[in-house]
Simulated assay, not measured.
Amino acid sequence: MARARMTDESLVQAAAELADEIGFDNVTVPALARKLGVKDASLYSRLTSARDLRVKIAVLALAEMADKVGEALAGRAGKDALVAFANAYRDYAKQHPGRYAAAQLDLDPATAAASAAMRHSEMTRALLRGYHLSEPDQTDAIRLLGGTFYGYVTLENTGRYDSHPRDVAQSWSRTLDALDALLRNWPA
C-alpha cells in the first residue's frame, strides 16, 4: 500500500502527537522519523533543524490553546470568563501535556508576533475588561494570571500535588475564587 503524501500540516500534527506521547523534550527529528516510518533525511527536506521542529509544535499548540480558550470565553464576562479561561487552559494542559510544554517555548519576536501568542494576550485583556482594570494594572494582572495558571498546571502535571489529601480540583476552584476576589478588589 502506498504511503499517503506527507504535508507540512501532517508532519507538525504527528510531531505534536509525539510530544504528547513521549514528552516535548524528547521529540527529535529521528524520533519523528521513526513514528512516521520515514528516513530522517526526508524530514530535513521540510525542516531546517530540530529547533525548527520544536517551534512548529509550539506554534500549533499556541493556536490550539487560543482556539479552546476563545471558545470557552465566548459570551462570558467577569468571574464566569475567568473560570472558563482558566479551565480551558488547564484542560488543554492535561489533555496535551507535550503540546502544553511546547507552548512555553521561548519564540523569537517575529515568530511570536505571527503566532497565536498575541491572541492569548488579547483574550486575557478582554477578560480583564470585566474587572475594569486600566494600565499598568492590566499588565500586572496578566502576569499574575499567567504565572498562577502556569505554576498550578505545571505542578499538577508533574504530580507534585498527588501526595496531599486535598482534592486538586477543589484547590483549583478556590484558587480561581481568590483570583476573582483579587481582581475585583485590585489594590490602588
Rank of each mutant, 00 (worst) to 15 (best):
R3M: 09
R3H: 04
R3C: 05
R3D: 05
R3V: 12
R3I: 03
A4I: 12
A4V: 14
A4E: 12
A4F: 03
R5L: 06
R5I: 10
R5E: 01
R5V: 03
M6E: 00
T7P: 02
T7W: 02
T7L: 02
D8M: 01
D8R: 13
E9Q: 10
S10F: 04
S10A: 12
S10W: 08
L11Q: 01
V12G: 09
V12A: 00
V12Y: 01
V12N: 02
V12H: 03
Q13Y: 03
Q13R: 08
Q13V: 12
Q13C: 08
A14C: 12
A14V: 04
A14W: 12
A14F: 06
A16P: 03
A16K: 00
A16E: 01
E17G: 06
E17R: 08
L18H: 05
L18M: 12
L18V: 13
L18W: 10
A19C: 05
A19L: 01
A19S: 13
A19T: 11
A19E: 04
A19H: 10
D20K: 01
D20L: 10
D20A: 13
E21F: 01
E21H: 08
I22W: 05
G23T: 07
G23K: 02
F24L: 07
F24H: 05
F24D: 11
N26E: 14
N26H: 15
V27E: 04
V27C: 02
V27N: 05
V27R: 02
T28A: 01
T28L: 03
T28G: 00
V29E: 07
P30F: 05
L32V: 04
L32Q: 07
L32D: 07
L32G: 06
A33K: 07
A33Q: 11
A33S: 06
R34I: 14
R34L: 14
K35L: 11
K35F: 09
K35V: 12
L36G: 15
L36D: 11
G37Q: 09
G37P: 13
G37T: 13
G37R: 06
V38W: 00
K39C: 13
K39D: 14
K39V: 15
D40N: 13
D40Y: 02
D40R: 14
D40W: 10
A41F: 08
A41H: 03
A41E: 13
S42E: 08
S42L: 05
L43M: 02
L43Q: 05
L43N: 02
Y44Q: 15
Y44N: 15
Y44L: 15
Y44S: 13
S45Y: 07
S45M: 00
S45P: 01
S45F: 00
R46A: 07
R46Y: 07
R46S: 09
R46K: 04
L47H: 11
L47E: 11
T48S: 12
T48G: 15
T48V: 07
T48N: 05
S49H: 06
A50K: 11
A50L: 10
A50F: 00
A50Q: 14
R51Q: 15
R51L: 15
D52K: 06
D52S: 13
R54I: 09
K56T: 13
I57T: 13
I57E: 09
I57G: 13
I57S: 14
A58N: 06
A58Q: 03
V59A: 04
V59T: 02
L60T: 13
A61H: 06
A61Q: 05
